[in-house]
Write a protein that binds this DNA or RNA. Structure first.
Ligand SMILES: [Mn+2]
Ligand SMILES: [Mn+2]
Ligand SMILES: [Zn+2]
Ligand SMILES: [Zn+2]
Lengths: 148, 148
DNA sequence: CTCCAAATGCAAATGTTTTGCATTTGCATT
DNA sequence: AATGCAAATGCAAAACATTTGCATTTGGAG
């Protein structure tokens, strides 16, 4: 199994040939709790307050190794130019980003299976995945903007 | 009209309240010729060889003002972490990226109109657009990989 | 418990994008 | 055509995000 679901951290790390360290546990826990993809810096700051000091480069290195082991995927939303990271789940999601307040919200249900097949036929690419971001104004920002 | 189609550069710049400068003309021409989104650096280097010297910061500033005037959109493909820029056309396209050789290819036909409506209903966002990138192995890379 | 490779912290290096400021240029006005 | 001024530009430095080198610490196998 590639994905994070249904395993305790230690078991997971061992199965991937990774040492079970405090920092890796903390980063993984944060990613599990997160509803949206996190930047390295946000992870770093959250851990700093909760806990002992982790170094920002360690955060980057942990994320790197999690990606290499297929536990995490990069999910750089193009609104800011910071890379974001989220757990590699069985079921992928897409993100809805408010172009005004930058709030991010996950959207499940992927409408692209059939489309991928069509593109595969048309282009002869062997398609492995996709990334979809949807932009718009969130309900709150719509209200604020209407008032002007 | 917001988009670049069917106008000469000067007319376009004037209609946007921009001065008609040599550098802006060059950057716009390059973007018109490009089949895929370009990085600021690529634009800078292409102009350097063709032509007199432009400064990289001027390239960034021109792209910024083009974005502000809706002539250009950012299109940072997440494979590399450099921001890319492309003309804001009437008909948007999506990109197919080879995860092996990083070649980028445009895909037209957008399958998401109905989906956007559904998400709008579900989330009460006012949706203004989306970005879709598709990943896979290009025909050439498939052949190369099969040989191993 | 010992030992060693793997993980970490810290500081410095890199690579990209932005900014400050002095100079130049486009263009509206004489 | 010459003038004046705001907008555009070049250059160097700053600001950010991310990566790397190296000395030290730590997890876990034996
Ligand atoms: Mn999907
Ligand atoms: Mn589309
Ligand atoms: Zn909002
Ligand atoms: Zn390829």
């Amino acid at each position: 199994m590639n994905c994070v679901d249904n395993k305790n951290n230690k078991e997971l790390f061992v199965s991937k040939g990774l040492k079970n360290t405090k920092n890796r546990n903390h980063v993984l826990e944060l990613l599990k709790e997160a509803e949206v993809p996190l930047t390295a810096e946000v992870i770093y700051l959250k851990l700093k307050v909760l806990d002992t000091n982790i170094s920002l480069s360690t955060v980057y290195r942990i994320l790197e190794v999690f990606i290499a082991k297929d536990l995490v995927v990069k999910s750089s939303l193009s609104e800011d130019n910071k890379t974001r990271y989220e757990l590699h789940k069985d079921e992928h999601s897409h993100h809805l980003v408010c172009v005004n307040c930058k709030k991010i919200q996950a959207v499940f249900h992927c409408p692209l299976e059939a489309y991928e097949k069509a593109v595969e036929k048309e282009t002869e690419f062997n398609i492995t995945g996709h990334k979809l971001e949807i932009y718009g104004y969130c309900p709150e920002c719509q209200r604020i903007i209407e008032k002007h």
